[in-house]
Design a protein around this nucleic acid. Structure first.
Lengths: 222, 222
DNA sequence: GTTTGCGTCTCACATAATGGGACGCTAATC
DNA sequence: GATTAGCGTCCCATTATGTGAGACGCAAAC
């Protein structure tokens, strides 16, 4: 025994601590409440994580995520060559559409946002980097789950994953035609209209092509 | 016993695994070699980390850093309000100077890069996000360690931390005058000249002021 | 002075991590 | 087709390891 998903081993508890600190900085006592761990245990784990730089403490002694996670996060992003290859194409797409744009990949039974740029409008960012979203809703989800081509090369969804939000996505394929990622544009229905595909479809598809060639997925040798 | 810095406990070993994967993806056997852990242990730890999304595996089963680290890294960055507040000022500074720019803070006995933008020139990025650098060399290090004002408000260093690299840094101070961060511009000596302060000093200082007001460190009430 | 809440540390206990070795598999090699 | 080599995975007796109630020191609040 020791693989209950909830957190039995040291490692599980340590991750619980990191999870707790992901939202906001926490004093030891708060950490105890949030994680449900005994004080001594929470303290031991938090200080152990601190030794590794995964956790740091501010001047008041409150625990927060450490700097080590910056470089690890950076390295994790680099592990997806797609994310870096897509950077410029996403920037262009964001400028063309003036809406938030994202790049999603499958990861297990979810999809994960591995690159994102926010809309230039005042409205808050819709999908943060690293977010895990379901494979059951949203245009990007359907792009990642259906292997077939679609009319125009894009898929749209309106208010599907989240009320008031519409999105258009296009598949990024490798040399053998497999879908490896989905580029998306998403924004409030008021701005995107109820047929976002008509407005943004061609831009999204073009961005997908751009990412493919930038990442060397199509025909390049280097 | 159990707090030897080298890695005795589960947690220490788990971090060793993450460290090993930071550079490149690794097969189990490679992971065993790099970490020095027994096969069974390395496997158990890697799969445990995988359950938490800190590690993932590609199609061939090779281990690599997981998507969970993307969001944790993002959250760690958000834990420094300075980093987000500095974003626009850094972008402007980068455009003004056309060189790589960074924001450093003290963290323990080191300094850490909590925000960075690369030079527009072809040359590779000099300081990656999350990098830990010594407090003993470089203009940013001297800004962070000396509490006093300097002539012009900036400090320069030429080939100090790394051969061929020159940099100019200015302190970012809070309301009480304490140095909380250092903004830097750095690039190859050939481009920056041997008196980088003359060329970039005023830009860097201006960026520091900008960051202070953006972060609400100066006179704001919120 | 007393109380309350905080972070820290200890230590006897037993739970949870350990790792040598077995297993099943695929891909070279003979 | 048999053999070897190398891989990822899993078992399970052993014990090293993490555990957590409680004690401690300290500061601020009463």
């Amino acid at each position: 025994m020791g693989n209950t998903i909830g957190g039995v081993g040291v490692l599980d508890k340590a991750v619980d601590v990191l999870d707790a600190l992901e939202l906001r900085s926490l004093s030891l006592s708060e950490l105890v409440v949030v994680t449900g761990l005994p004080r001594a245990t929470a303290h031991r784990l938090a200080t152990a994580l601190e030794r590794h730089g995964l956790v740091r403490r501010d001047a008041d002694g409150r625990f927060m995520l450490g700097t080590r996670l910056l470089s690890l996060g950076q390295a994790a992003a680099d592990a997806w060559p797609l994310a870096t290859a897509a950077a410029s194409a996403l920037a262009i797409l964001r400028d063309e559409t003036a809406e938030s744009v994202q790049l999603f990949v499958r990861d297990g039974e979810d999809r994960v946002c591995i690159a994102a740029l926010q809309s230039l409008h005042g409205l808050r960012t819709i999908v943060p980097l690293g977010a895990r979203l379901p494979l059951s809703a949203g245009s990007a989800a359907r792009v990642l789950t259906s292997a077939d081509q679609t009319a125009g090369g894009w898929i749209e969804s309106v208010g599907e994953r989240e009320a008031g939000v519409a999105s258009v996505s296009a598949p990024v394929r490798d040399a053998s035609g497999r879908v490896v990622a989905a580029v998306s544009v998403s924004g409030p229905i008021e701005r995107t209209s109820r047929q976002p595909g008509k407005r943004y479809g061609s831009f999204v598809v073009h961005a997908a092509r751009e990412i493919e060639s930038e990442a060397g997925l199509r025909g390049a040798d280097s």
